Computed example of a mutant assay.
Amino acid sequence: MKSTIKTTDSSAMVYDHTNSMAVNSKTQYAELGKKRIAYRLIGKGEPIILCNRFRGNLDDWDPKFLDLLAENFKVVTFNYTGLASSSGDKHKKVIDFAKDVKELSEYLGFKKIIVGGWSVGGWVAQIVTTEFPEIVSQTILIGTKPPGNVKHQIEELFMQTAFKPYYDLEDEVILFFDPTSEYSRKLAKESHDRIAIRESDRDIRIDEKDWEVFLNAGEDYTNDPYNAREKIQKTNIPMLVISSQHEICFPPENWMELNMKIRSTQIIIIPQTGHGPQHQYPELVTKYILQFIEHNKQNLLAN
Rank of each mutant, 00 (worst) to 15 (best):
H91Y: 13
N296M: 04
P165K: 15
G45S: 07
S105D: 04
A84F: 12
S85N: 15
H91K: 14
I232L: 14
R194N: 14
I262Y: 07
A84H: 08
A125E: 06
N79A: 14
P146Y: 02
V241Q: 01
I37Y: 11
Q298S: 10
T18W: 03
T161H: 02
I262H: 05
T8R: 03
E219Y: 13
K35P: 10
T130K: 09
A22W: 08
Q153N: 11
I293P: 00
A12Y: 04
N52H: 12
S25V: 08
L32M: 10
I262F: 07
S3D: 05
Y281A: 02
C249W: 01
Q245C: 00
F176M: 07
E219L: 15
D59Q: 09
S200K: 14
D171G: 00
V285N: 05
L157A: 13
H246L: 06
L169I: 12
F73L: 03
W118C: 01
K44Y: 05
W123Y: 13
T130A: 12
Q126K: 08
K74A: 03
L50Q: 07
P252G: 01
L141E: 01
L58H: 09
F177M: 06
A162K: 00
R198E: 08
G109F: 14
N19I: 03
D100V: 03
V23E: 09
W61Q: 06
R53F: 11
S87F: 12
K93S: 11
A162H: 01
D67R: 13
V124S: 02
